[in-house]
């Protein structure tokens, strides 16, 4: 199954490439700021949270804005991939009906364009670290590992959601709601350490929770992330990816008839 996937991806690499760039450039086509929106957007979000939440939550979190941006950017990566990718098969229905190409290209290019976006916007994190006086440490070297885990995770979920969405159109809205709910179950606005140990254990069932905590560890707290927990998330993500690919492969046979 994987060999087939890699072969397909290799021979259709040009399609993947042009799809990814279309996804990145095309999204804000016609707007004044263009691609810059993908950086301005999370910054504005962070600004709102930074103004509102210190009043509500009394977090006492030092470097709260930096703390926020390290949470908001990865979360943004995750939600953009899932929310915008879920209907990627439906949106491309016209072409699916007329031409054969490996259908996996569609969700993979959504996840990859999200990844590229995130990699670039990570510069914002570095800028914030510099200006808030937090500085850098060698633990940043863990960054590629965490990003990779998140990439596999979101792609796995996307495989499932986008193929189900073809058959049940509600999936999109249900998933949007679920992601919104998950936002509050993920320590983006708050620190997981606010909670007693029991609740923290429950929170860690949400794979995005250890991922965001790890980003904070390497950037803000300048320490080694919880590697055993990350390993579990990595295994979870790979399992989810395999299941996702299986579901996708099964459902994709009906795509041309259902869209």
């Amino acid at each position: 199954m994987f060999k087939q996937l890699f072969n397909d991806l290799y021979s259709y690499r040009q399609l993947l490439k042009s799809n990814v760039s279309k996804e990145i450039r095309g999204k804000y086509k016609g707007s004044f700021l263009g691609v810059l929106w993908s950086f301005v957007n999370p910054l504005l979000m962070t600004l709102v949270y930074a103004i509102v939440f210190p009043f509500v939550l009394k977090t006492g979190q030092p470097h709260y804005v930096t703390f926020l941006i390290i949470g908001v950017l990865p979360w943004n990566f995750f939600t953009t991939v899932i929310n915008q990718g879920t209907n990627c098969i439906l949106v491309n229905g016209g072409i699916i009906k007329k031409v054969y190409f490996p259908r996996e290209i569609l969700p993979i290019s959504i996840a990859t364009s999200g990844l590229v976006n995130f990699l670039i916007s990570s510069i914002i994190i570095l800028i914030f670290l510099f200006f808030s006086g937090v500085g850098y440490s060698f633990n940043i070297l863990f960054y590629p590992l965490i990003v990779l885990i998140q990439y596999i995770l979101s792609m796995g979920i996307l495989f499932i959601t986008c193929s189900i969405d073809v058959y049940i159109r509600d999936a999109e809205y249900i998933i949007n709601f679920f992601i919104m709910m998950l936002f509050y179950g993920t320590p983006v606005l708050y620190s997981a350490s606010l909670f007693p140990k029991k609740i923290r254990t429950i929170l860690n069932f949400n794979p995005m929770c250890p991922i965001i905590n790890s980003y904070r560890d390497i950037f803000l707290y300048k320490k080694v992330p919880d590697l055993s927990l990350l390993l579990i998330v990595l295994v979870e993500s790979i399992v989810l990816f395999v299941i996702g690919l299986k579901v996708f492969n099964k459902l994709q046979k009906g795509f041309a008839e259902e869209v």
């Binding site: 021979s11 690499r13 040009q14 399609l15 490439k17 042009s18 016209g94 007329k98 031409v99």
Partner: peptide, 24 residues
């Protein structure tokens, strides 16, 4: 199938041929 109306003919050649599985 898969022509993008806003792109030029040349860009569409690249896009369409890539759907057929050609490399750059």
């Amino acid at each position: 199938a898969g022509f993008h109306p806003d792109f030029t003919g040349r860009e569409n050649i690249y896009f369409n041929a890539s759907i057929f599985g050609l490399s750059a």
